[in-house]
Design a protein around this nucleic acid. Structure first.
Lengths: 349, 349
DNA sequence: GCGGTTCAGTGAACCGCTTCACTCACTATC
DNA sequence: GATAGTGAGTGAAGCGGTTCACTGAACCGC
């Protein structure tokens, strides 16, 4: 609480050396520390006592120490946020949005960044647990595993984007990747593109992901040729790859990037090579970061509503934390909306 | 440590229910918990004992519990990162960069976002302290105050961007705003602009900031008219303001935005109003976010090297944490580099 | 051979909160 | 009217480290 709620400041600032402890509060109210502890959490005590304790807490500016509370097994009001890559702009926005929601719920955020390496995910998650986070929000990039299951059993866990199959998380906000991919490929196909390169960060890390499977399925249905290529998750990561790709003899006429950040790298590469978008190559993104519409040219992309995603995920998490026991998995599917802008155009003759 | 260092995973995963404690390790080695504690931190014990303890720790997969350590007054390996606004893209990148540096130093990050409200800063900083962060990285937006001084005394604090005057922080990575502003205004002035609007997020929150003072000084020297306008720190915040500004009868011919994010809002507004950049209005940013060069048109901006800033700030912080006592303030000045791109052009006739 | 250091290691208190097991007073039950 | 049952509150034992004050042995020089 103190981390985010008003009122703290004055109190803490006015302490001479150290903060008020529960024992002092107990002494002040003439109760035992145990009673105070219960009262503050609204358990076991009479209404009258609770009122008295709260009043005293107010007067003395008492705020429970999150660290002590954590050690004793209580809640910390800290939530862990584990993202696959902070270099990805969509994820950056997500962090902001989740942070904001959690601030509203009087909780702070321990952020961990797997930096594109799936192998780090579990390690980071464990680290978050070591810090006694009350809950975990994960944007997974790696495969599910038994370790995840055991983590999900230990702490309320909500996934965003892809679910962790076989893991009974407290909540899942999943993207309907399949329909997003299909819509994008249909769009490009309708523009006459027959050879499309799909750049995905997940090709190697979780190749059986829905999105990648959808690529194959849609391609078959549409009769287009697809090159599915693994690509780092960021502007700087995708630029070199895009350069190589666009320099090759068999340059595709269209590139679908499974993240806007990747598309930005393609833009940078095109600029370097003097290629025109969409004159020489059409580019589509995924996620629709707020900046994408401002690019030259504005990027065709698929909207995954960041604020709503964060809001739903947070609400799932808070519900799970309150419930404090295994519940049925809360689930929400985010439907994509394809926004066509000037970065995609009919295939050049 | 466990948060980030390899080796943890196996160990922790293999625990049946709970992790190894220092007492178990003591029993295993035949020493007292105190000796083990000292040994693990390389104090007071013989080399032989230290070796034995480390070996045993390895075998048992022992990792100190950060929470218990924190309560007892030790280090947590958590660093607090307080930014003025996570809605600002430059700050988002900074968070990523700092995170990355800290990961390299086996530390995790508690992120707090003042969301553009200076009044929240201190409260959030206090909250970070409650969580016993070993250090604090602050990108301040509000004024300095005695409270900051007391915080800086309690924990190693490094500021980025603006310093907190009067506060003896452990480190300061300051931007040479003055020279950045001067270069930008000279550039616009040289292009013939005589009425320039400067959009700054700091006008109200810290009006005596160097950057804002520099605006006045440079304007006088160059003989241009300046409107210094307060503006929220993000795309969505600046767009409405920009709309209003550009719709007015006295539309400026040039806008200098003291953050690229603000410039993005101006871009969005121009798009809505059908105004051409730089045909109708020249726009310059500040910070040079990696995306700025990809906009339509590419944004003239002032480079503040994010990765280097993060690197220096982190190294200052780590030095201060190691030193663990008041030292002289470490200081680094980041020099701006103006990059002129297509968003600025001669004043329309 | 003796007082004085130094070094390695010990025991116990403590950080501030939670919770278990228990008491005590009071009410409901037969 | 004795017994069980309940609700409110207490005491003390943790949680897993750190650290202070202390002991015992080895070493020092004279």
């Amino acid at each position: 609480m103190p981390f985010v709620k008003p009122g703290t400041l004055k109190a803490v600032a006015s302490r001479p050396g150290r903060r008020t402890t529960i024992r002092e509060l107990a002494e002040y109210t003439g109760l035992s520390p145990a009673a105070v502890s219960y009262a503050l959490r609204g358990m076991q005590v009479s209404a009258e006592t609770e009122r008295r304790v709260r009043e005293a807490a107010e007067e003395l500016g008492y705020e429970a120490d999150p660290i002590a509370r954590a050690l004793a097994g209580g809640a910390t009001a800290v939530v862990g946020l584990l993202v696959g890559s902070l270099a990805d702009f969509w994820n950056q926005e997500l962090v902001r949005a989740v942070q904001r929601e959690l601030y509203g719920a009087a909780r702070s955020t321990l952020v961990a960044d797997a930096d594109g390496e799936p192998a780090r995910e579990l390690e980071l998650a464990r680290g978050l647990l070591d810090h006694r986070v009350d809950g975990l929000v994960v944007v997974p990039i790696g495969p599910a595993s038994g370790d995840w299951q055991s983590i999900a059993r230990e702490v309320a866990t909500v996934t965003i984007g892809d679910a962790l199959p076989g893991v009974s998380a407290a909540g899942e906000v999943v993207f309907d990747h399949e329909s997003g991919v299909r819509a994008s490929l249909e769009h490009l196909s309708a523009l006459g593109h027959r050879r499309i390169t799909v750049l995905s960060w997940a090709v190697e890390t979780s190749p059986d992901r829905e999105a990648e499977r959808a690529v194959g399925a849609s391609a078959a249905a549409l009769g287009v040729d697809i090159d599915l290529v693994a690509c780092a998750y960021s502007l700087n990561g995708s630029r070199p790859l895009a350069l190589e790709l666009l320099r090759s003899d068999e340059r595709p006429t269209a590139v679908l990037c499974l993240s806007d950040s990747i598309a930005y790298g393609v833009y940078a590469a095109c600029a370097e090579l003097g290629l025109s978008i969409p004159g020489d190559v059409s580019v589509a993104g995924f996620g629709d970061h707020p900046i994408s519409r401002l690019l030259a040219p504005p990027l065709t992309s698929t909207v995954w509503d960041i604020d709503r995603t964060a809001e739903v995920a947070t609400s799932f998490l808070l519900q799970a934390i309150e419930a404090d026991g295994p519940q049925a998995t809360l689930r929400d599917v985010v439907e994509p909306v394809l926004v066509t802008r000037a970065s995609t155009a009919p295939r050049p003759a």
